[in-house]
Amino acid sequence: MSENCNHDCASCGTTCGERTAPQSLLAPNNPSSNIKKVIAVMSGKGGVGKSLVTSMMAVTMQRRGYKTAILDADITGPSIPKVFNLKEKVTGTQEGMTPAQTKTGIKIMSTNLILDNETDPVVWRGPIIGGVVKQFWSDVNWGEVDYMFVDMPPGTGDVPLTVYQSLPVDGIIVVTTPQELVSMIVEKAVNMAGLLSVPIIGIVENMSYFVCPNCNEKHYIFGKSKVEEEANKYGIKHTATLPINPSLAQKCDEGSFETFEGDFLNSLGSILEGK
């Protein structure tokens, strides 16, 4: 009997040490999956461009010769299939569900790939949504993946907590925009990462500036960039900025995002390679 025990351990069929020992909440791997690195892309607020950054990181690492994948954890608001023009539904085998693949071979799993119609609303409660996220990890035959990027839903609630506790997340990329309000919300995401002891790889400031096609000068529509200030505040070493670029938005709408031009997130790609 433990010195802190106040009952007869034999009566419950276990020991107090067994009952109070920390239990791993990690979801089991699919036997056919070998995923080397898992990177979550998050923010404390919606509409800042998490799906854009997730897609761009996957394409960036794919261009560097790595096998990449995207787990779309934004269960009620999935947008990743649209970005890559994926319409066929996923199929299943005895080894699990087979993820969809883009033209360049990026593997993707999203609720829009299992719904009858992509516009059907997902009206599910939190525990069910969390269960789906874990199924996307355990029940999908991902095969060989060097980098999996997890497109997180906005906020710091049920689903982000499920991802951090159920998946072996190696690092986080935080997405922000220049406005002061968003900076405040980002602090929540950074603090959540700290509570769960998950390292932050870098901060990406989306809609940071606009390059005039006539004078080729940068114009800061939402005010001067605050990404370096935010990074220094939290001791984060690596940052990147994305412009307001109509061509990027057009490629997302057309489903041709794999053909985007630019090296916007190459610096973060180099950081990932070094991990």
Rank of each mutant, 00 (worst) to 15 (best):
M109E: 02
R19P: 00
P199G: 00
T111V: 15
V169M: 05
F136P: 08
K89R: 14
C9F: 08
E118A: 14
I173E: 06
T14I: 05
L272S: 08
D120E: 15
G130T: 01
D120M: 10
G105L: 08
P78T: 03
N4R: 14
D170I: 01
I271Q: 12
K226E: 06
D158L: 03
K87A: 09
T176K: 01
V163R: 06
N29R: 12
K188F: 00
P243I: 07
Q165I: 04
A73N: 02
N29P: 01
P81E: 12
G235N: 06
T76W: 13
F210Q: 11
K275D: 13
M184Q: 13
P99G: 02
V182Y: 00
K36A: 11
P213W: 05
I108D: 02
E261P: 05
I108N: 00
T60F: 01
Y220R: 03
V174Q: 04
I39F: 11
R125P: 05
D146M: 10
V211E: 15
E230W: 00
M152L: 13
V174C: 08
T93F: 04
I173D: 07
V198G: 01
N266T: 15
I200M: 04
S197M: 01
D139C: 09
N85I: 03
S208C: 15
D151L: 04
T162C: 03
I236N: 01
A100M: 14
D253S: 06
G17N: 13
S138E: 11
A69S: 10
G13M: 12
G143L: 10
G13T: 11
G269T: 07
D74Y: 06
S32T: 12
G157H: 09
E205K: 11
A240K: 03
I128E: 05
P168Q: 08
T15Y: 01
G262Q: 10
G105I: 13
V175T: 14
M61Y: 07
K188P: 02
A10Y: 07
N34V: 00
V90F: 08
Q62Y: 04
T162N: 11
T98K: 14
S225H: 09
N266K: 15
Q165D: 09
A10V: 13
N191M: 12
G44T: 06
G47L: 10
Y66C: 09
G130K: 02
K224P: 02
